[in-house]
């Protein structure tokens, strides 16, 4: 056993760095996973538990204070990180992937807002334009008896729908612009 009082600190630091490297491996495997947050958290914790156990085994097996061989052996046993990420993605049920793409607030909400905004605007416009056209012709063409009031209400409702669509669109664009890189 070493008499150097600093030895313990050196060993602890190296082990901490090694654990940080294990955590980075897990982060990389899970980071791009298209799955609900809860599922990602479960996967992260479980992979982390397994990796740390392998690392502890490999450290016991190896001699000396150098953690690098134990880390290398750990990664070798666990397998290629990118391949694991692909396999994990393939294990996520299709429905969960779709829900993630639709409702993942951090990454994809802006897409939903822009898409929804455009659809709502188109729907509103499809009511507004024909109604405006009918009102325009009311004065000089004999009309089929539809009360003017119905058309005016239709135009107003359509305008509200278009405004909601515009608002969603602007909100989505603003979210996209503000999104951190």
């Amino acid at each position: 056993m070493s008499d150097d009082p600093h030895d313990d600190n050196v060993i602890l630091d190296a082990a901490d760095l090694a654990r940080a490297e294990l955590d980075r491996y897990v982060d990389r495997a899970v980071a791009r996973l298209r799955a609900p947050r809860r599922r990602r958290a479960v996967i992260r914790e479980e992979l982390s538990a397994h990796l740390h156990e392998i690392f502890a085994q490999e450290r016991q097996r190896g001699a000396g204070d150098d953690v690098r061989p134990a880390l290398d052996a750990t990664f070798r046993r666990f397998g290629d990180c990118d391949l694991l990420a692909q396999q994990l993605q393939a294990s996520v049920p299709a429905l969960q992937q779709i829900l993630y793409l639709l409702f993942n607030r951090e990454r994809h909400m802006w897409r939903l807002m822009i898409g929804g905004g455009v659809l709502v605007m188109l729907f509103g416009t499809s009511i507004l334009l024909p109604a405006l056209g009918k009102i325009k012709h009311l004065g000089n063409v004999s009309y089929n008896g539809q009360p003017l009031m119905t058309l005016v209400v239709g135009v107003m409702v359509a305008m509200v729908i278009v405004m909601v669509g515009l608002h969603l669109l602007a909100w989505g664009i603003a979210r996209r612009v503000r999104k951190p890189a």
Binding site: L47, H50, I54, D80, L84, Q87, S91
Partner: peptide
């Protein structure tokens, strides 16, 4: 077996 590859299988079985 690459040990990491066990987990996608387990998640599939769980689903």
């Amino acid at each position: 077996l690459k040990e990491g590859s066990l987990y996608p299988t387990l998640y599939r079985l769980e689903s």
